[in-house]
């Protein structure tokens, strides 16, 4: 048996057990809200809290440099328009995703950075999971560190929030599991050596030991899809933006931790 089938098998057995034993919780938000850090070991917590040892800070440093660099046909840097990110970007990540009139849809921080790049800098957009986009997203996110997640759901966004909630409760993949079955109904319980978290997005992008690199929230969504043996959606997919909005609403009030570290 390979490691992968062994892991998958254990996951299936463990979840089958807790799903039978557990009872459906109807509360839409976990009570109380807990950061993913509370479900990790002391090593991961120490790594995140030490601003030098935290490997995610390498991406923040990269993002900080990119913020100052001129790019594209317009020859403008982020700083040329936005000035010092420490003030102009303070609290921005905490308010995302938002409704974008031009797209007539949701946009997340990554999307907004790409939009600036294409329209204002007239430069090629970055690849979704590139070190550059992760760096800028992490640098912008860090400016909201400690501020409560506080997305505003206006009339235009209500439909997207509902779509996100539907997706959150929809069973998927060969294991026929929804997000909610793990992260809403069974958080705090053991799955092998790990404790199931509440699945919040406030620490993203995160440095994940499993990945050995920084990764986006949408990469994490893909990890969960692969964990339950579902088809993987691409980063930036509309359904991922809906899910991102639902998570932002669900975790409202939790402080932003970017750049987070997880196992």
């Amino acid at each position: 048996m390979t490691q992968k089938t062994l892991c998958g098998g254990l996951l299936a057995v463990a979840l089958a057990l807790i799903c039978v034993a557990g009872h459906a919780q109807n509360a839409a938000k976990p009570q109380p809200l807990k950061s993913g850090l509370e479900f990790t070991g002391p090593e991961v917590r120490d790594l995140q809290r030490d601003d030098f040892a935290n490997p995610g800070m390498l991406w923040v440093t990269r993002g900080e440099k990119l913020w100052q660099e001129s790019a594209g046909a317009a020859g403008k840097s982020c700083a040329a328009c936005h000035g010092d990110a420490k003030t102009s970007m303070r609290g921005v990540t905490a308010r995302y995703p938002q409704f974008d009139a031009a797209r007539a849809g949701l946009i997340n921080i990554e999307g907004r950075i790409q939009q600036c790049r294409e329209r204002r800098q007239q430069a090629e957009p970055f690849k979704y999971e590139s070190a550059e986009l992760l760096g800028l997203t992490a640098y912008v996110g860090q400016q909201s560190r400690g501020m409560p997640a506080s997305v505003t759901i206006d009339a235009q966004m209500r439909g997207r929030l509902e779509a996100g909630r539907d997706l959150y409760y929809r069973r998927m993949g060969q294991m026929n599991l929804s997000c909610a079955q793990c992260h809403q109904d069974n958080w705090g319980k053991k799955l092998g050596p790990e404790t199931i978290s509440q699945g919040h997005s406030v620490a993203y992008p995160i440095y994940r030991l499993e990945w050995q690199t920084m990764g986006s929230l949408h990469r994490r969504f893909r990890s969960c899809q692969s964990g339950v043996r579902a088809e993987l959606s691409p980063q930036g997919a509309p359904e991922f933006l809906d899910l991102e909005l639902y998570l932002a609403w669900r975790e409202g009030g939790l402080p932003i931790e970017t750049p987070g570290v997880r196992r």
Binding site: F52, A53, W59, R62
Partner: peptide, 8 residues
Amino acid sequence: RIAIQHPM
């Protein structure tokens, strides 16, 4: 202390 961005 030193940290380097490298996939190793």
